[in-house]
């Protein structure tokens, strides 16, 4: 699949935003590390909402006919893309009301109730984002429950990294937040390692089942077009196995190894080190998302001569 920059930015930014909001709410609910100061908490909430909003806005950049984008909310009964839009938009009023009450540190019960609804909608949106890809039977690398699981966990992981930076910036006790980051980091690493193992072995459709000639070798002689087509541009993107290996290595280095090393170095985490770890983690996640699109092989490639996907 062609890795469109707008979609990569959208999924990373909105995933981080939703993860940050959910964990901010959890920190408020359980008073993690004694709780964050009211204004810092509200500003962090605004950052989360800005990341979600910016991501959603960038996702409209890959539309060829954006004037009809408003119609994308109508088919929520069948389409995961429509569900994602509905849940994401429903998230904003609850999240903004929660942030307003957090700013004034007022009406804790109402605030927690509103925040809870915003959290549920954030989870529903993240799950829908994953399901947009996971429901496609045409792309075996995406058609697995590990995809929505990874979208949920990676969003929470990058959100936790940002929340840790906030606690370091306001000088709150960061021990609980560091544990949170480590737990999510471990979950993200295990999940992505399982995913890479799972999609690494070929299975499913072949050029033989695509053409119906299952008792002989089938070889493409001619695609029938002289230059590229919509299909080759959209689905023909290929990434070599060596490049795939190095990109996976880069993900585990930047998103897992570097933050883990900084958090376990033995002395109190400085703001600079925390910020470095967060930037590294989000960079690693950008690599992961690029590879997620780049190594997905659509079955239409079988008709263009690929022996298997």
């Amino acid at each position: 699949m062609h890795p469109a920059f707008s979609v990569i930015f959208f999924t990373v930014a909105s995933g981080t935003g939703f993860g940050l909001f959910v964990l901010l709410y959890m920190a408020d609910l359980f008073r993690l590390g004694g709780g964050l100061p009211a204004h810092a908490s509200a500003l962090t909430g605004l950052l989360a909402v800005a990341l979600v909003g910016g991501g959603l806005l960038s996702s409209t950049f890959h539309l060829a006919n954006p004037k009809n984008a408003w119609r994308a909310f109508t088919r929520w009964r069948t389409s995961w893309l429509a569900r994602e839009g509905v849940f994401a938009v429903a998230f904003f009023p609850f999240a903004l009301a929660y942030i307003a009450l957090a700013w004034f540190d007022a009406a804790r019960d109402v605030r927690l109730m509103l925040g809870f609804f915003a959290c549920v909608l954030a989870w529903a949106t993240l799950f829908s984002t994953g399901m947009i890809y996971a429901c496609l039977k045409t792309i075996r690398q995406w058609n697995t429950p590990l995809v929505p699981a990874a979208y949920l966990v990676l969003g929470h992981f990058s959100g936790a990294m940002l929340l840790l930076v906030v606690t370091l910036a306001v000088g709150a006790s960061s021990t609980a937040y560091e544990s949170l980051v480590m737990a999510l980091l471990l979950a993200a690493a295990v999940l992505k390692a399982t995913y890479y193992f799972w999609v690494g072995r070929p299975y499913g459709s072949t050029i033989n089942t695509a053409t119906g000639f299952t008792r002989a070798r089938v070889r493409l002689l001619d695609t029938g077009h002289t230059h590229d087509t919509f299909l080759t541009r959209e689905f023909g993107f290929r990434v070599g196995s060596a490049q795939r290996f190095w990109l996976k290595a880069a993900f585990f280095l930047f998103a897992v190894a570097v933050p883990a090393a900084m958090l376990t170095q033995g002395q109190a985490l400085s703001l600079g080190a925390g910020l470095g770890a967060a930037v590294s983690a989000i960079l690693g996640m950008g690599v992961e998302r690029w590879l997620f699109f780049a190594e997905a092989r659509h079955v239409v490639n079988l008709f263009h001569g690929a022996q298997r996907t």
């Binding site: 539309l63 954006p66 119609r71 389409s79 893309l81 039977k137 045409t138 792309i139 239409v300």
Partner: peptide
């Protein structure tokens, strides 16, 4: 709206 999602879902191009 030209989101290409249906083309992704179509196995026959």
């Amino acid at each position: 709206m030209g989101c290409n999602y249906c083309a992704w879902a179509c196995p026959y191009g």
